[in-house]
Design a protein around this nucleic acid. Structure first.
Ligand SMILES: [Zn+2]
Length: 669
DNA sequence: GCAAGGTC
């Protein structure tokens, strides 16, 4: 078959990406012929005289652009990305392919992912490059042949409302993001005479503020600790860590008394015991977030690095589409074929067990879903050579896929209540059945014998300790916990979250301290300016309000024009007010970034008319609030408590500094 | 150049 598009009368199907185009071509024809145009594949089909061409794009070929450099700016248009974005030159060949195939189609179909963004991608390509106003929409939620055939045989009418909703979202983000970023950049330049690009946006700014809030919480944490008394008891060749049943204890002196009475008891005798069983079901199939979390936990890969590795594996055909929130495998997936493939790829031991013990290949799924893509799974194609990090990630994905076919693991839980001057209790968890854990264990662990404790038997007490407990002590964010926070608050998408986190680092708002995310003075300044001058951008509620409006547009209850006009009005006022108060913004930047004005006696940061910066002010407040508890729980004087706090690892750094500051009489209270 | 959203 010729690769030249026919003179007339053919169907042109636009897919969002090359992989999807191929799946669609093979679903609607047994022998589509693959062609190439400047390296980009497309497929020609002759079906009972009907000519069909399936052609891919690569996500968005168009982006919003403006020719105006000033603010406020509301004049924008959709421009080919290869023309206006340096990093998007590769989209030109996709653009040219569509142009080449656009001579005279009699029917055009938008077969991009069935979500709002796919509707926009297809709409822009069809209306701008193909030059058609009317087209059909293919509706599918997975790339299985059955579903694609069904979708092709039941083409949906043009998805006007979805397109309008999507265009609206783009415009809203552009109007807020570009205008306010420029306002900020301009103010920064005036204040510092440094050219530096700053940005704010609906997703990045609430995320920055979350990092800061967590930082402040950690730094100013000053709750007095509570105590736990624990005894190590040897019995039947095992060592039990028994916890005093009155734990946690508020006062140190009480903990000491308990410790002494346990030490005075010669032995611990068993006064009660129970055995129960606990099932641990296999984990669900991976979505991107869960994969990013595991890769960070096990290998310290950042979310964006994990995403990059997963995309490489996907493009190599080794795993399914990775940018998904779904924890469900696609219906009708040929799981047997994939398992056989994995068997060839070095997982035969586990696969054999699955085939033997779960012949119907029943598998576990998770709760989370995705409108356009199923969970991540290996395709079963045997990897040739993988670089070490790719191999690690592939291995995680392969083992997770295997785990979902395996049974729950089972633990025996032995409860023992002891008497050693005071009552104590211990739990011993013994693995009874490995279940899905075999997918992760190098060697099978010997199933341990379950002990059977007897009432009034005695154990030897080898050690008694008092532990300081800080149960609700907050921790700094990491890139991974930021990502989880974004997901929980429903901002950003699978494709963008990791990248947006990187932007906070790239702009210099957040700095990495051995994995911990801490704001810089610039980040604190941007947050402060945003809160003062454009507060709507600082909360996840802006996303909620966008979502509501966009849903209404989808439902035909609201138009894009109305929503965009409202946004322009709001942003116009924000920009005008901001320009009028530019001196104030510049002073904030000078104080917070350059450290002009009055300084904190502890850290030298800007302190805005007091002796302490906002962080140390807050730390002092927290310290004063909790100081009595410290005195009371240790039975010490205020002075002694301050000395203790100044050295304590259980409080935040800012609190230690403030405690020392009081002792040194730098701070008078 | 700045957003957030696709995908390469
Ligand atoms: Zn300070």
């Amino acid at each position: 078959m010729s690769c030249k598009p026919p003179e007339e009368g053919y169907t042109l199907i636009i897919a969002e990406k090359p992989k999807a185009a191929k799946s669609i071509a093979y679903a609607i024809s047994v022998n589509p012929s693959q062609c190439k145009y400047h390296g980009v594949p497309y497929w020609m089909i002759n079906s009972n005289g009907r000519r069909i061409i399936v052609a891919p794009v690569a996500g968005h070929l168009f982006g919003l652009n403006t020719d105006i450099n000033d603010i406020p700016v509301f004049k924008y248009y959709w421009a080919p990305r290869w023309e206006v974005e340096r990093k998007a030159y590769h989209t030109k060949k996709f653009y040219n392919l569509i142009k080449y195939l656009s001579r005279s189609p009699s029917l055009v179909v938008n077969a991009c992912d069935y979500d709002v963004e796919g509707s926009v991608i297809g709409y822009l390509v069809i209306t701008i490059i193909v030059g058609k106003k009317f087209y059909k929409r293919m509706k599918f939620s997975s790339l299985t042949p059955e579903e694609l055939r069904e979708a092709f045989n039941n083409l949906q009418p043009q998805d006007t409302n979805m397109v309008e909703a999507g265009l609206c979202r783009h415009e809203l983000d552009w109007i807020y993001g570009i205008n306010l970023s420029r306002l900020l950049t301009k103010s920064y330049r005036n204040a510092t005479s440094e050219r530096r690009i700053l940005s704010v946006g609906r997703v990045q700014t609430p995320t920055l503020i979350e990092v800061i809030n967590r930082y402040i919480e950690v730094e100013t944490f000053s709750k007095s600790p509570v105590f736990g008394v624990y005894a190590s008891i040897s019995y039947k060749g095992k060592t039990f860590t028994a916890s005093y049943i009155g734990n946690p204890i508020r006062k140190y002196i009480d903990a000491k008394k308990i410790k002494e009475s346990i030490e005075n008891a010669s032995k611990a005798s068993i006064i009660d015991t129970k055995r129960s069983y606990e099932e641990d079901p296999p984990p669900p199939p991976y979505n991107l977030n869960d994969l990013q979390e595991d890769a960070y936990r096990l290998y310290k890969f950042s979310p964006s690095y994990t995403q990059k590795l997963a995309e490489d594996l996907y493009l190599d055909g080794l795993i399914s589409y990775p940018r998904t929130n779904s924890q469900k495998l696609p219906p009708g997936l040929n799981t047997r074929k994939i398992l056989n493939g994995l068997s060839e790829a070095g997982y035969s031991g586990i696969v054999d067990i699955i085939l033997k013990e779960n012949p119907n290949l029943v598998y576990r799924e998770g709760r989370k879903t995705d409108p356009a893509h199923p969970a991540i799974y290996p395709t079963g194609i045997k990897p040739r050579y993988l670089r070490p990090d790719h191999k690690k990630l592939y291995d995680l994905i392969a083992r997770r896929f295997l785990a979902v076919f395996l049974p729950s693991s089972l633990y025996a839980k032995i409860y023992i209540k002891w008497l050693a001057g005071v009552p104590l209790e211990s739990y011993l968890r013994t693995l009874v059945k490995e279940g899905w854990l075999i997918a992760y264990l190098a060697d099978s662990v010997s199933e341990e014998e379950i002990i059977e404790p007897k009432i009034s038997d005695k154990g030897e007490i080898s050690k008694v300790v008092i532990k300081t407990l800080y149960t609700d002590k907050p921790t700094y964010h990491t890139k991974t916990s930021i990502l989880r926070w974004m997901e929980n608050n429903n901002i950003g998408t699978e494709s963008t979250r990791a990248e947006i986190i990187e932007i906070l680092y790239k702009r210099g708002y957040v700095k990495d301290h051995g994995g911990k995310a801490k704001p810089t003075s610039l980040g604190l300044a941007v947050a402060e300016i945003s809160k003062t001058f454009f507060p709507e951008l600082t909360s996840v509620e802006l996303t909620r309000s966008f979502e509501e409006k966009i849903q209404k547009i989808r439902d035909g209850e609201l138009t894009r024009e109305v929503v965009v006009e409202q946004a322009k009005k709001i942003v116009k006022k924000l920009v005008e007010d901001g320009l009028a108060k530019q001196r104030e913004i510049e002073i904030l930047i000078k104080n917070l970034v350059l450290g002009s004005g009055r300084k904190c006696v502890i850290c030298g940061a800007s302190s805005i008319n007091t002796d302490l910066c906002p962080l140390h002010t807050r730390a002092l407040e927290e310290l004063i609030k909790n100081l009595y508890e410290w005195c009371d729980s240790y039975g010490i004087t205020r002075e002694e408590a301050l000395r203790k706090i100044a050295k304590s690892r259980s409080v935040g750094k800012a609190v230690r500094e403030v405690a020392q500051g009081i002792l040194d009489e730098k701070i008078i209270i």
